[in-house]
Design a protein around this nucleic acid. Structure first.
Lengths: 347, 347
DNA sequence: CTGTTAGCGCTTTCAT
DNA sequence: ATGAAAGCGCTAACAG
């Protein structure tokens, strides 16, 4: 009846797409039968002919199940909500890419809930997504410091790249390993006075990195300076100025964040400190732009896509009430060598 | 009954939060009454005492309406889906920020659907979000060229920062104005050979910019070179190398994209072309990092937050079946002056 | 002023 | 092998 070339027009005029009853009518069966067939009910026994008729009708009408109605019935939405800070930092792109791939493989729908930097909220503020049944579980990478929300969350959730108040819901990378990689490299090049410019100490990744750095340097008799600052260009600039006042002055510096890297380089340039001659620089965020800078900047490249994928696996496990366990991403990190690292200058 | 300090425990053991009937039971009324009260039904006339009891019960149980059930009944989800390319380019951060603010003001829920760059889809592929009733409307900023999907979409949607096949659903900025700003400035500084490095010509913003540039330069007797390349560091590098082969060589260059800026600067440096001595450079994406580069790079700062907000207004209008009209963002653009721009060198 | 009722589109148990 | 019926949690028209 419907003109060819207008695939969705066969259905009765529903503002939204065709419903189960529409395709049931078209196939001349009850809608519950259609449901069984379309969901591949294993206990089904349908006459092949009926089966065909149903499938054909569904395809022809471009049927898509109403996710709302299904979720209401099943009390499961099939959606997971990622709560992610809205930042310029490109690491989130890699994390999200990994998460989206994995979620698609596992038949889950991902919605990103971006948190504006000017309005950070404690993780508990996001349980409304579960209460309103917009999602089955939460992947939390909110900006707010863990200390601010130690109350615990009684909905399915995992923390991404940070640790929550209780163990079992945390998916993190091997930050100590990353620090180790950095220190091994510069120590091997003879550096004895080493610095880290990083974000605020309340941020869990920062906390773990600096803790590890202190431990490693203490065991190796390396003089370590740590400067915390906001994760922005300006923060990097300020931290660097403070760094340069130290005596003896560090000769190698790791930077926790791509935005800070720009500030660090700029401050060094203005202070007349040459890179890598007087200061080696390594970024903890890898990004293509680093290779194109004035002095190309080395980095520690972390398994970010794996992190995102693992968070998806973990939250699905939580939603399905499988036992809670922390996850440490074991994929290898890579030191991306570029011109910003050189042997320590002679004293 | 419930111990103090466990606010959500008063409700009967629902895995999800309290339902309307739960708070109806607590208040000793019918759940439809609760619905009316909580939704502030204007035609209501409820005894103040009952009113109070209901509100108290709802607050105490931390009631949140089940968005699914509500949406199913109202055939409206209150959600809008933003389909946004998953890129490192920070302009999306500003756009999303503006969109989120406006949506919150207007009581709408925003979900970001990120499109991985390696898997671009035509806009029509996203109508499933409407069919499945996950959202009421689509804000589309997909990567794919318009030509690939000229079929038209019969669900509520607007295109963000690009134009779709039909008029009426497009929310865009004044790209010709941005180009004008650039050309006015460099022409005023005596530049007669001007270049643009930009993304691929199929991208609508690029198309509009280059068209405007050609028109303006023709009218002013300015020699214009346009180089298209992928919106990456490498793309910027390649385009610049091609640019430098031109004779006479351009002395001012606009760059369409922050990632390309890094490639452009790097290529100029390697070719021994000084900035701004031999080449003035202006970015069409403003970002804080530009101020911290080797040579700080000037930019045209666009009203991105306004763009995001306007898209929210437009899609809500579409969802409410108000007439479709294209939107051109009229907020002023600003030329952010930095050291990368200087008078044209003498011939 | 408040309760009853029907139904949004779907899944699932129970009949037949 | 398939249909009937109940119900997920909510809203809205209609009673009373």
């Amino acid at each position: 009846m419907s003109p060819p070339g207008s695939p969705r027009r066969g259905a009765p005029a529903n503002p939204r797409g065709a419903r189960l009853v529409d395709i049931a009518a078209a196939a001349g069966v009850h809608h519950s039968t259609v449901s069984r067939v379309l969901n591949g009910d294993p206990a089904q026994s349908v006459r092949p002919e009926t089966y065909e008729r149903i499938l054909r009708a569904a395809r022809q009408q471009g049927y898509r199940p109403n996710a709302l109605a299904r979720a209401l019935k099943r009390s499961r939405t099939g959606a997971i909500a990622f709560v992610i800070p809205l930042l310029r930092n490109p690491i989130w792109v890699s994390i999200e890419r990994g998460a989206l791939r994995r979620a698609a493989q596992r038949g889950h729908f991902v919605m990103m809930i971006q948190e504006p930097a000017e309005d950070p909220r404690p993780p508990t503020q996001y349980r409304y997504l579960i209460d309103e049944m917009r999602a089955d579980g939460l992947v939390l990478a909110t900006a707010l410091r863990i200390a601010d929300h130690s109350e615990g969350l009684d909905v399915p959730h995992v923390y991404l790249n940070r640790r929550g108040p209780q163990p079992g819901n945390n998916v993190v990378m091997d930050e100590p390993g990353a620090i180790q990689l950095f220190i091994d490299q510069v120590a091997g090049l003879g550096h004895r006075h080493v610095a880290i410019v990083d974000g605020l100490p309340e941020v869990d990744t920062v906390h773990r990195r600096t803790l590890a750095a202190r431990r490693i340097c203490a065991g190796r008799d390396i003089d370590l300076t740590i400067q915390h600052a906001p994760p922005t260009e300006e923060g990097g600039w300020d931290a660097t100025l403070r760094l340069l006042e130290r005596d003896p002055r560090p000769t190698a510096c790791a930077v926790g964040n791509l935005n800070q890297v720009f500030g660090v380089l700029s401050a060094l340039r203005h202070a007349g400190v040459s890179v890598p001659g007087q200061m080696s620089v390594v970024s903890f965020d890898e990004d293509e732009c680093l290779a194109y800078l004035d002095v190309p900047v080395a980095s520690v490249s972390m398994p970010l896509a794996e992190l995102g994928a693992a968070a998806v696996d973990a939250i699905i496990a939580r939603v399905e009430r499988r036992p809670a366990t922390d996850v440490l991403i074991r994929e290898p990190m890579v030191l991306v060598e570029r011109a910003s690292v050189a042997p320590a200058p002679p004293d």
